[in-house]
Simulated assay, not measured.
Amino acid sequence: MSSARSALSAAAPLVHCLTNTVVQTLTANALLAVGAAPAMVDEPLEAEGFAAVASAVLVNLGTVHERTAQAMRVAVRGATAAGTPWVLDPVAVGGLAFRTELAAELLGSRPAVVRGNASEVLVLAGAGSGGRGVDSTATADDALDAAIALAGRTGGVVAVSGEVDVVTDGSRTVRVGGGSPLLTRTTGAGCALGALVAAYVAVTGDPLTGAVAAHAHVALAAEAAAAVGPGPGTFAPLWLDALDGVRDLSAAQVTA
């Protein structure tokens, strides 16, 4: 994992983001801060072709509607055909039928990484009914068995966000601690994390290593930002600065 940060800086991967309209700016700026290149191409007539030439694709269901759902379908098709890794962030699945059904459909195309909170992962694994909107009502460890089962179904990695993040490929499980509670009070921090997972997977070639590196990077930056920004209003821009400043992931609280 120590080489992942330098690989990201050197490669500057192009990450195609079909994501939450509320957080597009933060997601784009987070990618720029770590040295990646963002693109928000959500037109169905363009999404398939763009996914095929991008380094990685993020599919985030935060504010999905019919047109963007179709763009997501064709982007996943283009990514799959081109061998482009893609990340599924199943925001708020469980309580709303449209996004839950779409997430289940997309899951059949075997994302490299599923990244969500514990309640979302439990829903995708068929072991829960969902949380409270975007908020989880379960812990990451509550969803560990479901994450392992889900990884087995997709052949990829499942990353569960929580006080301590849990990342598994079904046989290997890694925990990433640290970070700051202020991340949960910053709109779009989790969505930006999904984009960083895509960027790191693109440059590492290993979904588990990439997902762990992204979580470690976000946690280290959050710790640095929280040390000087005591509230959510000051934390968010300081977090972007800190994402840029992280050069070494070895200090992260990573345990296998």
Rank of each mutant, 00 (worst) to 15 (best):
6 S>Q: 15
202 A>Y: 04
156 G>Q: 08
212 V>Y: 09
206 D>P: 00
125 A>V: 03
42 D>W: 02
76 V>R: 02
24 Q>Y: 00
252 A>M: 02
64 V>W: 08
179 G>C: 08
209 T>V: 15
117 N>T: 06
65 H>M: 11
198 A>D: 03
218 V>W: 06
50 F>I: 01
128 G>S: 05
239 W>G: 07
183 L>R: 03
53 V>L: 15
18 L>T: 01
67 R>E: 13
185 R>F: 01
56 A>W: 09
210 G>Q: 05
136 S>M: 12
77 R>N: 09
81 A>H: 07
2 S>A: 15
70 Q>P: 00
57 V>E: 00
26 L>Y: 13
234 T>G: 15
81 A>R: 15
112 A>S: 15
169 D>L: 07
115 R>Y: 04
142 D>P: 01
174 V>L: 04
80 T>L: 09
198 A>R: 08
127 A>N: 00
250 S>L: 06
196 L>E: 02
120 E>T: 06
104 A>Y: 00
213 A>S: 15
90 P>H: 05
21 T>F: 14
170 G>N: 00
94 G>S: 09
93 V>S: 05
143 A>E: 01
25 T>G: 12
150 L>W: 03
227 A>Q: 06
152 G>E: 04
118 A>W: 12
218 V>F: 09
17 C>N: 14
35 G>F: 06
158 V>E: 01
162 G>E: 10
95 G>P: 03
177 G>I: 06
81 A>V: 07
198 A>L: 07
21 T>A: 15
234 T>L: 10
23 V>M: 10
246 V>D: 06
68 T>M: 13
165 D>G: 08
11 A>Y: 07
243 L>V: 05
80 T>K: 12
71 A>L: 07
13 P>V: 05
61 L>G: 05
6 S>D: 14
108 G>R: 14
236 A>T: 13
223 E>C: 03
104 A>Q: 15
73 R>F: 04
53 V>R: 15
129 S>Q: 13
36 A>W: 04
179 G>W: 07
187 T>H: 09
244 D>E: 14
30 A>G: 05
26 L>C: 00
205 G>Q: 03
105 E>I: 10
204 T>M: 11
179 G>I: 10
16 H>A: 01
186 T>Y: 08
183 L>C: 04
13 P>H: 09
240 L>P: 00
